[in-house]
Simulated scan of single mutants.
Amino acid sequence: MIQSMTGFGKHVVQLPSKKITVEIKSLNSKNLDINARIPQAYREKELELRKMIADGLVRGKVDLGLYVEITGEETTSEVNHGVVKKYMEQLSQIVDGDSLKLMELALRMPDTLKSDKNDIDKAEYDAIKKAMQEALVEITNFREAEGRVLEKDFEMRLKALDDLLEKVKLLDVERIDTIRERLEKAVSELKVEVDANRFEQELIYYLEKYDITEEKVRLANHLNYFETTLHSNDSNGKKLGFISQEIGREINTIGSKANYAPMQQVVVQMKDELEKIKEQMLNVL
């Protein structure tokens, strides 16, 4: 079953003193492109979080947002009392002011806050990984739902191409007869004597150049292969893209060999259906 590369997943975990929110958004892309926005305190775990995304989503332009909100009395930083006092002493020698004003100025200076928490708490990181896994499940479900919509559209386009191919097969019979009549009429209008056997040989050689039997067979095979791949267990957008290129090649060849207006009109319709498939193909995983 195919999947779309468009998706969104979000999960929230509430700890005693923190609320952890993970948001994952994805759009179509030829490769995997991850943009991670995570707090500085968790930067050391970024590679591991990226690997989780790579294993789960495979391909697409992915935005990861990790948000940690402190909801209790816990804080990751403390006021560096000694540094603040030293700043206040120095500032008092430069400007006049009460202690509150001096403290306000001092707290804007570097190193006035210190962190007493250098290591990531294991329970907290386990909660982050759990939130990541749940968000990945949500975005995968979103992608599968979008994929079902795309699958129905592809099935409709394939049915249209199959019907148009049948029209081509019917037109091919009368096309050859029409081309033969047109050539015979053109020769007769020249009012010259021609060898009947030689003319027939040249006519057969000429008509063979416009034969599209192989193209019709290959196009039918490509359409069947596309449908088989579409309903396989894996979502393989790149493979479907290659097959659609082969479908386009056969349609173009039929159009170049047609030399018959009704058939060329059908070929234009086939190209239109294929173009719609290619547009949707850009979003398939």
Rank of each mutant, 00 (worst) to 15 (best):
E146H: 01
E166M: 09
L27Q: 08
I53S: 04
Q90E: 15
M103W: 06
I254H: 02
Y225W: 09
L100M: 12
N233R: 10
I204K: 08
I179Q: 02
T228H: 10
D98G: 10
T140D: 11
R249K: 10
L207T: 07
I247L: 07
L164A: 03
R175C: 04
V217G: 00
R143H: 05
E166A: 15
I254E: 01
K152C: 05
L113G: 00
Y67W: 11
D96S: 14
A220Y: 03
V137W: 03
D121P: 00
L136Y: 00
D55W: 00
M88N: 06
K130R: 09
L66W: 06
F226K: 04
K185R: 13
L240F: 05
S99K: 15
K129D: 00
V12E: 11
Y225P: 03
L219G: 00
E193F: 06
E184Q: 13
A106F: 06
A131W: 02
S4N: 00
V137D: 12
Q265T: 10
K101I: 09
K30Q: 11
Y125G: 08
I128Y: 06
M281H: 01
L91M: 14
E44R: 13
L164R: 05
Q269S: 14
L203V: 07
L107V: 14
I179H: 01
I120S: 10
L49Q: 01
L203Q: 05
K51N: 13
M281K: 01
V68A: 10
R37K: 15
G241Y: 01
I243K: 03
M132V: 14
E184R: 13
E78S: 13
D162A: 09
E104A: 15
P16Q: 07
L274H: 03
Y206L: 15
K30M: 08
G97A: 09
L171Q: 01
K152G: 10
I20E: 01
E189A: 15
H81A: 14
R198L: 12
M270P: 04
M263W: 04
R43I: 14
S244Y: 01
V187M: 08
M109E: 10
I179Y: 05
E46M: 09
K19Y: 00
D172I: 01
N197V: 13
A145E: 04
N233G: 11
V83E: 11
T228E: 15
E273H: 05
Q3E: 14
V68T: 11
L223C: 01
E189V: 08
A123V: 10
Q264K: 03
D63M: 04
R50A: 02
G72R: 05
Y206N: 05
G7R: 02
E74M: 07
F199D: 08
E279H: 07
E46H: 09
K122C: 03
E151T: 12
I2V: 15
V168A: 03
Y210C: 10
N283F: 05
T21P: 02
G82M: 13
V149G: 08
E73T: 12
V22I: 15
V137K: 13
N224D: 15
